[in-house]
Simulated scan of single mutants.
Amino acid sequence: MTPEVAAILGLSAVTIALLLGAFLATTRQGRKPRTSGTPGESPLQPAEGAQPPRPSAGHVGIDYPDPRTIKVGDTIDCQGTRTRVLGALYLSSQGTEWTEYLLDDGNRRYQWLSIETRSGPNPGDPPHLEVLLWTSVPTQGMIPAKTTLSLEGVEFFPVDRGTAAFRSEGVTSMPERGLLDFADYRAADGRLLCFDRLQGQPWNSAYAQPLPPGSITIEKKG
């Protein structure tokens, strides 16, 4: 092998390693589960393809309301839709904690709003809030696989799965306490898909739509 050929092969190996590292870093940006139970039997329409949240402009709690202050019974404006917070789930898995709120727009259309404080992508970066709006999607008995799955013509790759402990408050159609299995997936366009279930129950699924900072207005209950 000539020195020129060896150098070309070496550069090719480095390029492949960098591309593989970038792909793994992307797929690891999963999230924790959206809870499953919702009151009523009204069908929910799937959310459109989620777009990445816009960069933060301003300071939470100063320039726009802090969604972590939402309480059961509050009324909030979420993306121009006025909804009431019927209940909340407080979840934890492997040291990570987050909250999910069940929203009702008054027309028996229910969505879940998940709020989690996440660390920055790089060491030393400040933490940020991840706010996701979840909309149920029918999966017709589909079971989340440990490999790639296809739903509505979109390929989703597995990013995380496990079990979370939860405590409920208000109206959630969930027990007061329990365990929730989850499996999270991400598409190449950044769209999120989550399967979850109470242990021993059928799987439910939902798409996630990331919300940009300042998209929620909170009206505290009287």
Rank of each mutant, 00 (worst) to 15 (best):
L91Y: 05
G200F: 08
K32C: 05
T135W: 07
V159G: 03
S205P: 03
E155C: 07
H59S: 13
T27Q: 15
S114M: 01
G162N: 10
A145G: 12
I143R: 10
L113E: 07
R31T: 15
G87M: 03
W134I: 00
I16S: 11
F156V: 12
L149W: 02
D105G: 05
T139H: 14
F195R: 05
D196G: 15
G178E: 01
G37L: 07
S56V: 15
H128E: 06
A208F: 12
P212M: 03
T27F: 11
L193D: 05
Y110M: 02
V131R: 08
P158G: 07
T163E: 15
Y64R: 11
C78G: 02
R191M: 04
P65E: 09
A206V: 02
S42M: 14
V5N: 04
L149H: 02
R31C: 04
G73Q: 08
I115Q: 10
Q45M: 14
Q209E: 13
G95L: 10
D181T: 05
L180G: 01
I143P: 02
T35E: 13
E152F: 06
R28C: 07
V14E: 09
G106E: 01
R177L: 09
S168W: 10
R167H: 11
S119H: 03
K220S: 14
D104N: 09
T26A: 11
G170R: 06
A6K: 01
I216C: 08
L9S: 06
K146A: 10
P33G: 11
I8S: 01
S114D: 03
Q201N: 11
I70T: 09
P158L: 07
S215Q: 14
E176R: 13
F182I: 07
W98E: 00
D63I: 01
G162R: 12
S119T: 02
T26W: 15
P3C: 00
G95K: 04
P53Q: 14
G61K: 09
K220E: 15
R68C: 08
D184L: 01
G200L: 06
I115H: 11
L179S: 08
A47Q: 10
K146Q: 14
V159I: 14
Y90P: 00
S150H: 12
T139Q: 10
Y207E: 01
Y110E: 01
I62N: 02
K32P: 04
I143F: 14
G37P: 08
L44G: 14
R186W: 01
N107I: 01
S136W: 01
E48S: 11
G30A: 13
E41A: 14
D181S: 11
Q45A: 15
L198F: 05
T38A: 14
L91H: 10
G200P: 04
K221L: 05
A13I: 14
D104M: 08
L179E: 13
Y90I: 05
P55G: 06
F23R: 11
I143L: 15
I70C: 09
E97K: 10
Q79F: 02
I62T: 10
L19D: 03
